[in-house]
Design a protein around this nucleic acid. Structure first.
Lengths: 335, 335
DNA sequence: GTGAAAGCGCTAACAC
DNA sequence: GTGTTAGCGCTTTCAC
């Protein structure tokens, strides 16, 4: 189109020097005379020159860009993780290219492909549901770190996650210590993290001698799905609901209340994630908190490491979750 | 580095044809014999060929990318707007490149610069606080649409926003109809949108003959700031709080309750934005709802239009907000 | 149908 | 210090 943006060539002619000298000057090389440098900088400024990243990337064969795929921007969890690595990467001169694919696995793959076409130097994948095989293929091309998921066992993929199994144990032990036995798990649906949490629930129940009480109601990671799952779970009158994540837990609470029951007097509810959403202050949700920002920070650290020495072995970073006791859990009702 | 990603040249040699034929075939040109096409596609697949976006962008001088600057991913408002244009742009073959700058105006400018270096073909700016002069400079280089803000009067910038003035009138009229007169506005701080909403409040109060009751307490757009502002406002015991946005309103409610007051029996609260956050279902916030996804959709429409015919005059799209009466507003207490 | 060649804007040897 | 040159991977005339 009318793309008459000034190029390095324009700056060169305007300041009466060669292209390469402009390049040198603009990259702050010491081997440029002060006079030339000044003239060049002046010309660049007047022209409103802005380097073309595509051209540079093509030439140096480095994009200095990290691609980030986020599952769902609606869940504050992701915004918090993002906080963690965005600034970190920026400090190291990397731009982050952020894409989302809604809830569509095909699009997800598609977006990763686009990221790769842009020659990103690394990939941070947050809570996707891509099969391990695809991830492996991708990781061959570019350093990849997967956040909030540690079920990937590839020598080329780093993972940064909290220990969901241990986290769930925290939740169940807490409920058991309050006297609960009829603890139902509202699952997060068919994705790796949710599978893990469901397993954590079962394991912890078994460890507490409550194997017979294990009951999992299929749910999802959204508020609406938490609501529906809770409504179903309630037909058997459990005394506690252990929910796959905070957002769904909020939905569960709504369901409990519309059933005319009180939280935590009649039913206790515990979530997972530890989002610091304002609205939660009021709900005062008991939950298992992940160090979200730290998760992001560590992801940046891993990717940076891999980008700089591509041969390093992959690492699996585990951060521990902690129990955050607030107002939605209480003693089991003594019916 | 070890960048041995296959190029079009590799595909060419492997399939025994020329570079240009590969390009033609891969772009689906009809003037390629079925035989060649098949061979080329097979080679591309086997090699795992992926076109280099930087090279293409350089060659065709189009990036097919739209840059998006979002103020703060934590506020669900932005995620919803994003939903609106992301899919729209994708359908039209554009990739969106998303950046955030936290709460830092300098970084914001910096990020825009980066976007421009990547040769984005359009810019969508969401609720930034950049001065009009900067915006103007940017809009000269690339089609720009500003969302949720309409105080920009540049012939080259499109705006897509709701009518904050009218929205505030809705809020105040609602409260007045419930018998309230002591209505305090908790402002959103020093940014264009908040200024507008504050003005809307004042205007509407005046229109209702309540000019003397006008009182604005400086706040902010986060839950914490809403909490603090409400705490201050409460010292004068208003009967209603009209808050700059939903998130801050949630904070305000928390403040009211910790002061031992009830919502809405003692104090009514109305927010602004109409976020569909799960947690809100429980709080049941009365608010002025903006058509957020639609706002995003229209932004995409505008940018697409401008990209395709750069000479079109800029437009100012106004969408109307609507009153969403829920549980946090009620009749003024009959002290 | 297919190939050769030029060029997008930049960087990086390499000469001078 | 400064200029020349080649080349990054791709698209796109233009011949054949």
């Amino acid at each position: 189109m009318s793309s008459n943006r000034p190029t390095i060539r324009d700056v060169a002619t305007k300041s009466g020097v060669s292209k390469s000298l402009v390049a040198l000057a603009l990259s702050g090389s010491p081997k440029v005379s002060p006079t030339s440098r000044e003239r060049i900088e002046k010309a660049a400024l007047e022209l409103g020159y802005r380097p073309n990243a595509a051209a540079r990337s093509l030439s140096v064969r480095r994009s200095r860009t990290i691609g980030v795929l986020i599952l769902d921007l609606h869940n504050p969890v992701f915004a918090e993780i993002l906080d963690g690595f965005q600034s970190e990467l920026r400090e190291h001169g990397f731009t982050t290219m952020l894409v989302t694919a809604g809830d569509n696995p095909v699009l997800e793959l598609n977006e990763i492909d686009k990221l790769l076409q842009f020659q990103v130097e690394g990939l941070i994948l947050i809570s996707h549901r891509l099969p391990a095989s695809v991830l492996h293929d991708v990781s061959v091309e570019v350093p990849t770190v997967v956040v909030t998921r540690d079920d990937i066992v590839s020598a080329r993929i780093d993972t940064v996650s909290n220990d969901d199994l241990a986290g769930m144990t925290l939740a169940i032990d807490h409920l058991v210590s309050l006297g609960h036995t009829d603890i139902v798990h509202l699952s997060g649906g068919d994705n790796p993290v949710s599978h893990l949490r469901a397993k954590g629930y079962s394991d912890a129940m078994t460890a507490n001698g409550l194997k017979k009480h294990i009951r999992i109601v299929p749910g999802g990671l959204t508020e609406a799905k938490g609501y529906r799952a809770a409504a179903e779970a309630l037909t058997h009158r459990p005394t506690a609901l252990c929910v796959a994540n905070d957002i769904a837990a909020i939905g569960a609470i709504a369901a409990i209340e519309s059933a005319g029951l009180r939280v935590p007097e009649d039913v206790s509810v515990i979530g997972y994630d530890g989002i610091t959403l304002g609205a939660l202050r009021r709900i005062n949700l008991t939950t298992v908190g992940q160090p979200l920002t730290e998760l992001g920070r560590r992801a940046a650290e891993r990717i940076l490491d891999r980008v700089h020495n591509p041969t390093t072995e992959s690492q699996r970073v585990h951060l521990s979750a902690e129990l955050v006791v607030r107002g939605t859990t209480g003693p089991a009702p003594t019916s």
